[in-house]
């Protein structure tokens, strides 16, 4: 009797509606329902095992962004208050505009070195995870696809600029969407699709959304006051949130999310009977 009640409480598969007089399924239906239930359990287990590695790419992305924003805390030039009201963020900021290509060679070198290394580390991580768990990730394909936005960025900045200044200007000014942080966000997109991972998709959307908004606000070098239509005192908050130092809360939030993800999966995989 208890089993019967348990069966009745299960969610119906697909768009099946159970009329009151259909609560007693035929043997065929009961067998099909049982098979689909076992299929659902296998899918849940495989998906959990596959996604248990997703926290590291998020953490690496967050650490890269965090490290890039730390110098801005001490060396950021103060915004210039304009006589007509509002503030303007100077273009000669130590790290350039938030979303802009770093104007100084050392800062450019930072992204040139760390981003490829990050993708190699992610690939090695998935390769190791595949050997340990028995679920292989298409990491070679991912690295090729994931590095592409950054490669496009480098080519656009290094090769196009001398030869095609007009195209370079269109790509990088005034919104300057071709920037390292944006490229990292774009690089996470194929990984989210390949892994069918919601948390990776959310991370990717957060990075792209935040960078786009920051680019919109800061990239044009217009007054924050006018752009966001906030009273002057609140402009400071907006400038912090969308300035170079504003990458801190974004990256710290991602690190926390990645750690929570890792702890969650460690707990579920170590739970007795959870692997069956």
């Amino acid at each position: 009797m208890g089993d019967k009640n348990a069966d009745e409480e299960k969610e119906p598969v697909g768009q099946v509606s159970r009329e009151p007089y259909l609560l007693h399924p035929s043997p065929w239906q009961a067998a099909a329902q049982e098979t689909l239930d076992s299929v659902s359990r296998l899918v849940t287990r495989s998906r959990r095992d596959r996604r248990s590695a997703d926290w590291l790419p998020i953490a690496i992305c967050a650490v890269l962004v965090l490290a890039s924003s730390l110098p801005a805390l001490n060396r950021g030039l103060p915004p210039v208050q304009l006589p007509e009201g509002g503030y303007r963020i100077p273009s000669n900021h130590p790290l350039g505009n938030l979303a802009g290509w770093p104007p100084r060679p050392a800062q450019g070198l930072y992204w040139l070195i760390t981003v490829p290394l990050a993708f190699i580390a992610i690939a090695a991580w998935y390769h190791r995870h595949a050997l340990r768990t028995g679920i292989r990730h298409p990491w070679v394909r991912y690295v090729l696809v994931g590095v592409t936005p950054f490669a496009v960025l480098v080519v656009a900045h290094l090769l196009l600029a001398p030869h095609l200044p007009r195209l370079h200007y269109v790509l990088t000014q005034p919104n300057q969407y071709l920037n390292p942080v944006f490229a990292i966000g774009l690089g996470l997109a194929p990984l989210a699709v390949m892994e069918r991972s919601q948390i990776l998709a959310f991370t990717c959307a957060a990075v792209l959304g935040y960078t786009s908004l920051a680019t919109y606000i800061e990239g044009n070098e217009v007054t924050v006051y006018r752009r966001v239509s906030l009273p002057a005192p609140h402009s400071h908050i907006m400038m912090f949130l969308f300035g170079n130092a504003g990458r801190l809360p974004l990256s710290i939030a991602h690190i926390i999310a990645a750690l929570a993800w890792a702890i969650h999966y460690r707990r579920t995989t170590s739970r007795p009977g959870s692997t069956s």
Binding site: S38, L42, V43, S46, R50, G134, R136, T275
Partner: peptide, 26 residues
């Protein structure tokens, strides 16, 4: 039942190893 389980796991995993399938399907 076992073959359906194999297909389901491999479909979800993308590519699965022999030992993983043996363990998952017992």
């Amino acid at each position: 039942k076992a073959r359906l389980g194999i297909l389901v796991i491999v479909h979800e995993a993308g590519r699965a190893e022999f030992s993983y399938l043996a363990q998952a399907l017992q």
